[in-house]
Amino acid sequence: MKRHIAALGRATLDTLSSIGRAGLFLVQSVFCLPSREGFHLWLRQMHFVGVMSVAIVLVSGLFIGMVLALQGFTILVGFGADEALGQMVALSLVRELAPVVAALLFAGRAGSALTAEIGLMKATEQLTSMEMIGVDPLRRIVAPRLWAGFVSLPVLTVIFGVVGIWGGYLVGVDWLGVYEGSYWSNMQDSVDFVDDVLNGMVKSLVFGLVVTWIAVFQGYDLIPTSEGISRATTRTVVYASLAVLGLDFVLTALMFGDLG
């Protein structure tokens, strides 16, 4: 019994200390002053983290928009409301699916790659050698990646949303025969820029910060062995996905919770 209590205490202390380290790590990284060199490093990471995630976001956005339209049509047509298809597809995407699914895809593709990359740098002593050369790895390695994730996820979310709406159009209008004018005009009438689009963007900014923070911290804090890298990469995907889903509920409650 005593052993179990001790183990529980140890686990609690480890978790608290890890959260503390992660918090300090975020503060130290976020406030690294930008420089000309830093801007180039950030651009390079924008390519790695953002541009290289575009393909997966395009394909996923297209299919999710198409599925939404197909499912939505079969339900709406029963109520004779198939003309509201554009509204349904756009609101679902802009408020929920684009920020959440883009963040989950981002965690799987860019987040795991960031953890593995930084972890491998740690395992091969590249981070230590950087420190010994007098260069702070938080400034040179972590900060550009953190800022690249924070900036690129909202852009990926916009791409996801736009392609999804187009996918919905292809299925709804071109295939199922919904009137094109009603698809677009219902969407235009019902989607509010501040309540829907901006709130969706706020979500993706929060997700971008949290997912990238988890990814770079897991890479920086891992045990530098092959097993340590593999575990940290898995932790990144699991923690980031859970954080996105949990935070989505909290943010949705804050943004749309007073409707009832």
Partner: peptide
Amino acid sequence: LFKLRRRMGMLFQSGALFS
């Protein structure tokens, strides 16, 4: 500390070159 390290060099067991 980082300023002091500029006056130091270190050769690592693995080389630790930036890949």
